[in-house]
Nucleic acid binder design. Structure first.
Lengths: 149, 149
DNA sequence: AACGGCCTTTAGAATAAGTCTAAGTTGAGA
DNA sequence: TCTCAACTTAGACTTATTCTAAAGGCCGTT
C-alpha cells in the first residue's frame, strides 16, 4: 500500500469510527493487491499463511466494517458465496460461463450510462452491472473444437 | 397460465428433455403470477398450502431445471439467499436500501445499452443491472423526518 | 389400456457459509 | 502510562442448499 493510499485508508477508517488493527490492514492490503474477487474463505486461508492470523469471525467483521466504510464492496455473482473487491474506482464485472473467471471491466468500456427514468421519487445511489458470456480464451477453444468436428 | 403460455412452457420443457410434473407447473405458475422474487423457502411455504405438496429438494431441483430451460432466473442480490424470477421478458432490478424491496425495472426505463467495448474475442451473452437506492415511499418518509428535526 | 424404463419426488441426513457468544486482548485518546 | 470501549478469538450455532437411497409416476410403446 502506498503512503498516499495508507493515509486515505486511515482517514476513511477514522471517519467511520473504526480502529486500525493489523487484521484490518492485512485484509484491505490483500484486496488492494489482488484483484481476484476472493471469497471470505480464500482471504482467511491466504492471510493465515502469514502474520497476523485472523479468525473467521474477524474476517467477516472486518469485511463488513470495510464495506460500511466504503473501502470494499461485497459481490454476489455466481452463487450463494460472497466475493470481495477493494473499491478503489467504480467498475463493472464480466463472468465467463465456460471457465467461471470473474474479471473487472473498466467503466470506459461500457456505453451503459445508468441514467434511469424511474418513477418519480426514486433515487438511485449506486448500481452494479454484471455481464455474462464467454471470455476471449474460452471463445478460442470453442471455435477450435467446432472446426475439428 | 394462459393456454398460449402453457404451450410455450411445454415446448421449452420438452426441448430441454424435462417431464411436465405437477410440481414443476406449480412452481412456474406461482412465479409467473407473483413478481415478488421469492426465495426457495417462500415458494415451498406457499405451495404447501395447496396441492401439490413439494419437498425442499424438489423445489430446488425444479428451480434449477427451470433455470436451465431458460424459463426462470436465479438472482443473488442482497445476501446469500437465492431469489427466483419468471423470465418472461428481460428486465432489470432496483433494491431499496431502506425497506429492502426488490422491484422490476423495465428496460425502457434504463438508458443503459450494454454495447460493450471489451477486449477482442469477448462475447457478452447476457447482462444484469442491479440499482440500489431509496424507493419513492421511503424517500418521502426520509424527507418527512428531516423536516421535523 | 396396460407396461416398463427411467426420470422425478421424497424425507432426512450432510455440508457449508455466515453469525453469535462470552471471555480475553489491544488501540488510541487523555 | 492508564483506561476502557472496541476488537479478536474459538467454537458452537443457524440456515440455505445439496446429497442419498428408496419409492413413485410420466409417457412412449405395445
Amino acid at each position: 500500500m502506498t503512503t498516499e493510499l495508507r493515509l486515505q485508508v486511515e482517514s476513511r477508517m477514522h471517519a467511520a469510527g473504526l480502529k486500525l488493527t493489523p487484521q484490518r490492514f492485512a485484509v484491505l492490503d490483500y484486496l488492494i493487491r489482488n484483484h481476484i474477487h476472493p471469497t471470505a474463505d480464500q482471504i482467511t486461508a491466504r492471510l493465515n499463511n502469514r502474520f497476523p492470523r485472523a479468525s473467521r469471525a474477524t474476517i467477516y467483521n472486518t469485511l463488513h466494517a470495510l464495506c460500511e466504510a466504503g473501502l470494499v464492496r461485497e459481490l454476489y455473482v455466481d452463487g450463494a458465496v460472497a466475493r470481495y473487491d477493494a473499491l478503489i474506482e467504480t467498475h463493472h464485472h464480466f463472468v465467463c460461463r465456460a471457465c467461471g473467471t470473474l474479471e473487472d471491466v473498466q467503466p470506459a468500456a461500457v456505453r451503459a450510462v445508468p441514467r434511469c427514468n424511474l418513477d418519480e421519487g426514486y433515487c438511485v445511489e449506486s448500481y452494479q452491472l454484471v455481464m455474462r458470456g464467454v471470455c476471449a480464451s474460452c471463445k478460442q477453444s470453442e471455435n477450435r473444437s467446432k472446426n475439428l468436428s
